[in-house]
Design a binder for these strands. Structure first.
Length: 861
RNA sequence: GCCCGCGUGGUGGAACGGUAGACACAGGGGACUUAAAAUCCCUCGGCUGCAAGGCCUUGCCGGUUCAAGUCCGGCCGCGGGCACCA
């Protein structure tokens, strides 16, 4: 065998796999199926190391399952709609469609050399009309099933770009692109009724035992179930229709500490009062500012006393003022609260500012200090509370809330209710590059779904991006259509769908990607669910929650079988690929607009930097380089390593091996050039080892046959467990160990050949190309990729003799070798007779001796 | 503020409550070479000892146990998620 040259063997084996159609997924009733999926990429045009790590993990699983006899589905597609394509069109000209499909072609060309076991015949892009047309069909079905509705909602509106902005796109109250002050505007938007499924999406999390606990928790918090009391305040001096004011509280046990009531600026009562110019002025002030987290954080609490009073439910003679306050949200609870400044920080801030009374209801040691801090923990005694609630038994702990609810229900002034934080999913986007919402506005029939025969509603190609706003809105003809109901001239909806819709069902589409219906039941029933889903933790909430909702919606509309309610059986969230960042200190030149002689830091690419004796220098000039700790690879910090460069210099197998080694897959892995070189060196060593074994004379005899056979069995066991347990770093550690063992072994030729063939098989999920070469060179039949996964002989996994450490009072002092099944009393005798033990005991009596068979012996004196 | 996770050599990390530091990177020493690269061998937590060995060591303090990196309680530090959600 010649030198290890990845650039020669890798394309060769990829071609062989293609020719054998080794990765084409086929429905096979005789074999169990396995569906492994990595979160599909956005086609930015360049793959990065994060992609390499993500897809290699999926590939390791897919290849292993395939070798283990499963019928494997491992597809790939493109999450292809979205703003970057439009931004590119605005900045550089060109068309979003051309830009996107060009990027897909580029990225696919970069992914191919990785040698992933992907069934490319199922490739899809969400911007294909064949894909989004089916999505439109489902939208119509969901409308009919009552899962879709329209309502007015307050949004962030960019008056310059003339579009709605997501909260993340509002920075310091300004649009991220235009820099214009963002307005709160009410727009009629399309919504999915995800909140109908709050309870189910929450309770079904318990069944997702193969999901990371962290993700389940994040989803549970996002859904945000709370139990509280809803009751009506009787108003005094309120306008007609507001004889009572409904409020919701999760702390009904603090009801006796009420000092005011407050309503949201968007509350119906506030709107009624808006006729008063003073109220109107206040509301204008209160509604200013974006809806972003930062805007809310810094916003000062402001309020307006309406003059209306309400009666305390437990004491009608006790009246509380009703304020309008900017910190009350309309879309949580009832949009109105009772304020208890003694036990709520926000109420405390508000009461302090406006001089409202602060009335603690809990007595206890914590009381004195906590008065200043406003919040008293639940566990303090509730003496005042008990007085307030008509002499009930003393309450401590969390059941105070339950008791208060029970009391309210018995007295008839309120009832216990369950609320969720989860809101309905607004899917309207005033954007071009997305899936058109298949709806028609007719002057006589109103809002009508498009006829399915007219699907897909394709995006028009002739649009321009030189003016801000949605090009669909100003297209001369695209909006014009006939009403599907009455045939009259009508107008199309010009909003497109949130791209999260596209990614909420692609996993189901992969089971029948070319079908003329969204799914095909037979195929979905065979392939669903996804057995292993792999992706970044950044999708822990939205993408996964929407997908879980969509699976339910698809079930309800007949597009998925009932067994697919939870589409992802197992989820794995992988860590990022990080790299150190490098900066040099530069000085501005004479013509610099910043002024001459000013120092500044400049990021440097890793390939510009060399490391010498623990420090870093610029290759070109030798200037010193500042090194910062590893962080996520990003273009702006220039701490990126292009996978294409690594493949060019070391091959795909080295890149794959490196990203899977060292760090556990759920954690970040730091890319280092020394690590990549080490991976390459190791593969070269394996290659040389294979060559050496190939040169051994067929009749070579050795002493170590039994040992090598045992080591082979152990390696099979260790690597298989490592892969199946998503501990790829441990599987790789096992492969290093096994390689070293083979290299040192002195066994007969057939045993050596068997060992190295097994090594090739065990390596093949990680480094499939070199594995094929070794396999073939050592006389393996067919493709290594298609060979059955090796099985460890259980008899060889158990050693005949075991080495047992002997502890004296918990400290290791000696060890003995004993046959593996020696009875405990004999082990005990041997241990006490050991010379080191005797020396340590020095004649002291043994109080107790513990023998854990096959593990350890502990002598207590 | 609320919820969650994590602290092990110079580094990434191993370790069913049972020999802490597997495997790898970096470092040190050596062989081969005119030399370098490549390759191979040895060494590599700290202190101590000529050595055999001994003592210490998993963020800090305490507890449970024959035995604790692992379990329990309390601190300290780091990271993540959510957040005027009543």
């Amino acid at each position: 065998m010649s030198r290890y040259e990845p650039s020669v063997i890798e394309p060769k084996w990829q071609e062989a796999w293609d020719k054998a159609e080794a990765f084409t997924a086929r429905r096979d009733p005789d074999r169990p199926k396995y569906y492994v999926l990595e979160m599909f990429p956005y086609p930015s045009g360049r793959i990065h190391m994060g992609h390499v790590r993500n897809y290699t993990m999926g590939d390791v699983v897919a290849r292993t399952k395939s070798a283990q006899g499963f019928s494997v589905l491992h597809p790939m597609g493109w999450d292809a709609f979205g703003m970057p394509a439009e931004n590119a069109a605005m900045e550089r000209g060109g068309h979003p469609k051309d830009w996107t499909y060009g990027n897909i072609a580029d990225m696919k060309a970069q992914m191919k050399p990785l040698g992933l076991s992907i069934d490319w015949s199922r490739e899809l892009a969400t911007c294909d009309p064949e894909y989004y047309g089916q999505q439109q069909a489902m939208f119509i079905d969901m409308m009919e099933a009552g899962l879709v509705y329209r309502k007015a909602a307050v949004v962030n509106w960019d008056p310059v770009d003339m579009t709605v902005l997501a909260n993340e796109q509002v920075i310091d109250g300004k649009g991220w692109r235009s820099g214009a002050a963002v307005e709160r505007r009410e727009l009629t938007q399309w919504f999915f009724r995800i909140s109908d499924y709050s309870e189910e999406l929450l309770s079904a999390l318990d069944g997702l035992t193969n999901w990371p606990e962290k993700v389940r928790l994040m989803q549970a918090n996002w859904i945000g179930k709370s139990r509280g009391l809803q009751f009506g305040f009787e108003t005094v001096g309120g306008p007609a229709g507001f004889e009572t004011l409904e409020v919701y509280t999760t702390r009904p046990d603090t009801l006796m500490g009420a000092s005011f009531a407050a309503i949201s600026p968007d509350h119906p009562l506030a709107r009624v009062l808006e006729g008063d110019p003073k109220v109107a002025a206040f509301l204008a002030e209160a509604r200013k500012g974006g809806t972003t987290a930062e805007a809310l954080e810094t916003a000062e609490k402001i309020g307006f006393d309406t003059g209306i009073r309400v009666k305390h439910p437990l004491d009608p003679t006790w009246e509380l003022p009703v304020w309008i306050a900017n910190f009350i949200l309309m879309d949580y609870g009832t949009g109105a609260i009772f304020g208890c400044p003694a036990h709520d920080q926000r109420d405390f801030d508000f009461a302090t500012k406006y001089g409202l009374p602060i009335k603690p209801v809990f007595l206890g040691e914590a009381m004195e200090e906590s008065l200043a801090e406003a919040y008293v923990p639940m566990k303090s005694e509730r003496v005042t509370y008990v007085r307030g609630f008509a002499g009930a038994a003393t309450q401590t702990g969390d059941d105070g809330v339950a008791t208060a609810i029970a009391h309210a229900e018995a007295q008839g002034y309120g009832k216990g209710v369950t609320k969720f934080r989860l809101r309905d999913w607004g899917v309207s986007r005033q954007r071009y590059w997305g899936c058109p919402i298949p709806v028609i506005h007719c002057a006589t029939c109103g809002v009508v779904p498009e006829a399915k025969a007219n699907l897909p509603i394709e995006l028009p190609y002739d649009v321009s991006f030189d003016i801000p706003g949605n090009p669909l809105d100003r297209h001369p003809t695209w909006r014009d259509c006939a009403c599907p109901k009455c045939g009259a001239a009508a107008r199309r909806e010009t909003d497109t769908m949130d791209t999260f819709v596209d990614s909420s069902w692609y996993y189901a589409r992969f089971t029948a990607p070319r079908a003329t219906t969204p799914t095909v039941m037979e195929d979905a029933a065979y392939w669903m669910n996804v057995d292993q889903y792999i992706g970044g933790v950044e999708h822990a909430i939205l993408h996964l929650l929407y997908s879980r909702f969509f699976a339910r919606a698809m079930m309800k509309t007949g597009h998925l079988p009932a067994m697919a309610v939870e589409p992802f059986n197992a989820l794995f969230t992988q860590g990022m690929v990080t790299h150190e960042t490098y900066e040099t200190t530069e000085v501005t030149g004479p013509n610099d607009p910043r002024g001459e002689g000013i120092k500044f830091q400049k990021y440097r690419f890793p390939e510009e930097v060399e490391h010498r004796s623990g420090s870093a220098f610029l290759k070109s000039s030798g200037a010193p380089v500042d090194v910062s700790p590893p962080s996520k690879m990003s273009k702006s910090k220039k701490n990126v390593v292009d996978p294409m460069n690594i493949i060019a210099s070391f091959g795909a197998d080295t890149a794959r091996w490196f990203v899977m080694s060292d760090s556990p897959p759920e954690r970040d892995v730091e890319w280092t050039s020394s690590g990549a070189e080490a991976a390459f060196k190791h593969l070269s060593r394996v290659w040389a080892l294979c060559s050496r074994i190939g040169d051994m004379p067929a009749d070579h005899k050795g002493e170590g046959d039994a040992d090598l056979a045992r080591a082979t069995a152990r390696a099979i066991d260790e690597v298989t467990k490592g892969i199946e347990g998503f501990a790829f770093n441990k599987a790789i550690a096992g492969l290093y160990g096994f390689t070293n063992t083979i290299a040192k072994a002195n066994a007969s030729t057939p045993t050596m050949k068997h060992a190295i063939r097994t090594l090739a098989q065990l390596m093949s999920p990680m480094t499939p190309h070199i594995a094929e070469s070794i396999w073939t060179y050592q006389g393996g039949a067919g493709l290594c990729t298609q060979a059955a996964w090796p099985k460890a002989d259980p008899a060889l996994l158990i050693d005949d003799t075991v080495t047992l450490p002997i502890q004296i009072n918990g400290k290791r002092r000696a060890e003995i070798s004993v046959p593996k099944d020696m009875p405990a009393p004999e082990v005990e005798k041997l241990a006490l007779a050991d010379e080191d033990v005797v020396r340590f005991l020095a004649g002291q009596p043994v109080k107790k001796i513990i023998v854990v068979p096959g593990r350890i012996i502990n002598v207590v004196i």
